[in-house]
Each structure stands twice: as structure tokens, then as C-alpha cells.
Simulated assay, not measured.
Amino acid sequence: MMWDCSKPVPLVLGERTEQDPHQTKGQQQQYRQFLPQSVVTKLLKQQQLTTEDWLCRNEERSHPWTLETRSHNSLAPGTRQVKDADGYFVETAIRLDRGWSLAIAVDSQTHAQLQTHGNPVILRLGGEGHRAVLSSCPALERQWQELTTLSQQNFQETETALQQSPTAGRVLAYLITPGVFERKHDGGQATCRAYPWEWKLAYATNPNYVRGSLVSVATEKALAISGRISYTPSDKTTQSIPTPQVFAAPAGSVYYLECPAMLFQDQLTKDGRQNKAHIWRQLGYSEMLWIPFSKDHD
């Protein structure tokens, strides 16, 4: 296998399961494009996954949502032309399958404030009259707590094992939320890439290169994220303005390292001042689960 040695080694499977070419599309088994909490727990406990863990069950679909393209316009009376004053734009709506909901994380202060308005509470989204029903989900909170506890234990145990053997620290970092890895380069130009800038490559052709712990990466195309910030100009009127787009590594990306490594974003401060990159962690981005590496992993 050949690759650009200035980048991580491609992370590929030793064996690949192929669909039977003689099966029709309707007969072929559908594989999940997501991992349930129970399956992620098995990974964190270093248990072997089976084919059943990947297959869709009952009426489950590989993607539990549908994309719907919706146009926004109105026609001028007596014509088939769009009103110039209204303009024309198209948006993509995401329709979750029945029984599925969108989960978000909030800090304890926000949670306490929401509870004063009742449970559930109606939340307004944007200025077009969209609404969302928001309610706390203790069951999901318990599941998330179990995953993060197992991940932290794996991280600490791997660091301890590394002191006894240089190969005992090998880990897989599973990116469970989109990862924003942005740094300023080439005269202050902000640049995003699929893995943290502070993770140096374990293998490089340049003899002067300082070796790190990152061996390999498996990822998909970048996810474009457009945010907004509050801005208060000279007239003291707070406004919401768009921020430059960033391109995040998608959830599901996997990183193979020779030893566990923290993220620069995890640091609250830098040189005695607030670390601006930490805002991404506060917003829930770049969340990783740590899995001790084993040759038995698929």
C-alpha cells in the first residue's frame, strides 16, 4: 500500500465483508450507519462485535432519517413566476423516523432554568415560527454517563499500562461528535483538518521530524458548520451575526495512536489566558471515546 508519508497511514480493515453479488437489492442485508449505545458499550469493554451488531433489525433503516428538499417562494398573481420581492431559496429538511428524537446536551445552569418552565417546554427556533418540544431524558443521561465513565477508565488504564510496556498504550480514539480541529497557519490563515494539529505523526520520512503518537486515521468527507455569535457594536444594540464556516471531521472517525493523547481544546487556559479553542469542547464538539487497541477488534 502506498500513501503520502506526510499524512497518517490510511486505517483499513484487514478483511472486508462483501454482499453476495447474486442477491437482489431487496435481498441484501442492510448494515447500520450508526452504532447503538449497547454496541458502543461492547467496544469500550473490548468485547468482540458480531455481524448481528451491525445489521438493521425489524423495520430499522441504515439511516434513521429522510432528507427532504423544500423550496420557499410564492408566485405572482395570475402568473407562474416567483415574486421578485420574496426571492427564492431552497432548504434541506431532515425528517427523523418515527420513534427517533434529536438529543442535545446543556450545562447544569441551562438545565435548571429550563426546568422552571416545565417539562416538556416549547422552544422557538429562528424567526420563521418553527417550534421544538424540549424535554429532559434521564435514561439517555444514564447511558451517556456509562459511556464516558468507561472511556475515562480506558484512558487512565492505558496510560498506566504504558509505563510497563511501550506497546501497551495503543488505543483507538472514536470520535462520537463532529471534531473541529482548526489552527492558524501561513500568515494567520485559519485551516481545518481531519485530526488534531497537536497530534504529531508516529512515522515520518523526515529525520528532523519530532515523532508523535498518531499512526492512522479513518474518516469521511468534512462536515461544514456555520455558526453565529452575539455582537455588540458602538450603539450597544446586541446583534446576531454569522461566523466563518469551519469544516469538522464527521462523527464516526477513528484514530489509532501509540498512546492516549489529550486535546489542546481540553485546556481551559493557555499561557495564563483563556483558551479560545476550549469553546468547541463547551459546545460538545470533538468528544472522543477511548478504546484500548486489540488485534481482535474488527
Score class of each variant (00 low, 15 high):
residue 7 K to I: 14
residue 11 L to E: 00
residue 14 G to C: 09
residue 18 E to T: 11
residue 22 H to T: 08
residue 33 Q to G: 03
residue 35 L to C: 09
residue 36 P to V: 10
residue 36 P to G: 08
residue 39 V to S: 05
residue 40 V to D: 00
residue 41 T to R: 09
residue 43 L to N: 04
residue 46 Q to L: 07
residue 46 Q to F: 09
residue 47 Q to K: 14
residue 50 T to S: 11
residue 53 D to N: 11
residue 55 L to F: 01
residue 56 C to I: 03
residue 57 R to I: 02
residue 57 R to S: 11
residue 57 R to V: 02
residue 59 E to Q: 12
residue 60 E to F: 02
residue 60 E to Q: 02
residue 65 W to M: 04
residue 68 E to H: 13
residue 69 T to M: 13
residue 76 A to Y: 14
residue 80 R to F: 11
residue 82 V to T: 02
residue 83 K to F: 08
residue 85 A to I: 04
residue 85 A to G: 12
residue 89 F to K: 00
residue 90 V to R: 05
residue 93 A to Y: 13
residue 95 R to P: 01
residue 98 R to I: 14
residue 98 R to L: 14
residue 99 G to V: 08
residue 102 L to C: 08
residue 104 I to Y: 04
residue 105 A to K: 09
residue 107 D to N: 09
residue 110 T to L: 14
residue 111 H to M: 15
residue 112 A to D: 07
residue 116 T to A: 03
residue 121 V to D: 07
residue 124 R to D: 08
residue 132 A to L: 15
residue 133 V to Y: 07
residue 133 V to F: 04
residue 134 L to V: 08
residue 137 C to D: 14
residue 138 P to E: 06
residue 140 L to R: 00
residue 140 L to K: 00
residue 143 Q to T: 01
residue 144 W to R: 15
residue 154 N to W: 02
residue 154 N to S: 05
residue 155 F to Y: 12
residue 157 E to Y: 06
residue 157 E to W: 09
residue 162 L to R: 08
residue 162 L to E: 01
residue 163 Q to F: 12
residue 163 Q to E: 15
residue 165 S to M: 06
residue 169 G to K: 05
residue 170 R to M: 01
residue 170 R to A: 13
residue 174 Y to C: 00
residue 176 I to E: 04
residue 176 I to S: 07
residue 176 I to W: 06
residue 179 G to T: 01
residue 180 V to Y: 10
residue 189 Q to V: 12
residue 190 A to F: 00
residue 194 A to V: 03
residue 196 P to I: 06
residue 199 W to K: 04
residue 202 A to K: 11
residue 211 R to A: 06
residue 215 V to H: 05
residue 216 S to K: 04
residue 218 A to P: 06
residue 220 E to C: 02
residue 224 A to V: 06
residue 224 A to S: 12
residue 236 K to S: 12
residue 239 Q to F: 04
residue 243 T to K: 15
residue 247 F to S: 00
residue 247 F to Y: 07
residue 254 V to F: 00
residue 255 Y to I: 02
residue 256 Y to R: 10
residue 256 Y to F: 08
residue 258 E to N: 13
residue 258 E to T: 09
residue 263 L to C: 13
residue 263 L to T: 11
residue 268 L to F: 04
residue 269 T to F: 07
residue 270 K to C: 06
residue 270 K to R: 12
residue 284 G to M: 05
residue 284 G to Y: 01
residue 285 Y to I: 03
residue 286 S to W: 07
